[in-house]
Amino acid sequence: MPPRKRSNEPQLYNRLTLLRTERGMSRQELADAVGVHYQTIGYLERGEYSPSATLALRLAAVFGLPMEAVFSLTPFRTLSEQVYGTQESS
């Protein structure tokens, strides 16, 4: 069963998996850094849970980035698109 979302709730995109992997962090380490359960990091990464503003700011602070670099209401461009300027085939 997919997670239930309120019909008017917009999808919140994030770069958590990319940023966490880039920094060699485990889910547990990131969870400890922001004070949540490691399972919650999984839900956030899969876009199945939208964080509060406080948690989003804490996550951005761990990566030393502004919040809009980690979370967005529009999909992020893929890494290959940014580096090579190629579009992902859909």
Binding site: V36, H37, Y43, S52
Partner: peptide, 16 residues
């Protein structure tokens, strides 16, 4: 359920 339904608020995160 990891005791979500019985633990006090300070032992849970916002999603739980």
């Amino acid at each position: 359920t990891r005791g979500i339904e019985e633990l006090p608020a300070d032992a849970l995160d916002e999603r739980q």
